[in-house]
């Protein structure tokens, strides 16, 4: 399990995981919720690496291929969450029992020669 490359993104968006709940809504509008687990899943993390050199693109591509696309889980290093305190990093970067996986292949947009922008979408799932 190779860590994601230690790169600081130019933008980062994050969503906490959701709990496994099913909802039944009656015609009256009354709602019953049923919970089937005590841990959240499906954390999402979107990273953008804007105007980065080819070496950075290569390292992301190599990592994607090394993980078999979305097959193998991995950890995200603290550099990716640069700017967050260690307390917050514990909640969003390394939630208990969660591993990160690629949602889709990284998207690369060429800017100029040897400079590209890369977008990576990850999901945090229960191990």
């Amino acid at each position: 399990m190779a860590d994601f490359p230690a790169l600081k993104p130019t933008s980062r968006s994050f969503q906490l995981g959701q709990y496994p709940i099913k909802t039944y809504r009656a015609l009256s509008g009354a709602v019953v919720r049923r919970s089937f687990g005590n841990r959240p899943f499906g954390y999402t993390l979107e990273l953008e690496f804007a105007n980065v050199p080819e070496a950075t693109v290569n390292s992301i591509c190599d990592h994607y291929n090394g993980q078999g696309g979305g097959t193998l889980g991995f950890t995200v290093p603290k550099e990716v969450f640069a700017g967050y305190s260690s307390t917050l990093q514990g909640k969003v970067r390394t939630p208990a029992g969660i591993e990160w996986l690629y949602v889709e292949p990284p998207s690369v947009t060429s800017v100029i020669k040897d400079i590209s922008s890369v977008t990576v979408r990850l999901v945090g799932e229960i191990k």
Binding site: A30, V31, V32, R33, R34, S35, F36, N38
Partner: peptide, 8 residues
């Protein structure tokens, strides 16, 4: 609203 947690 009611909530039920179910463990099997």
């Amino acid at each position: 609203m009611s909530e039920i947690r179910i463990a099997q």
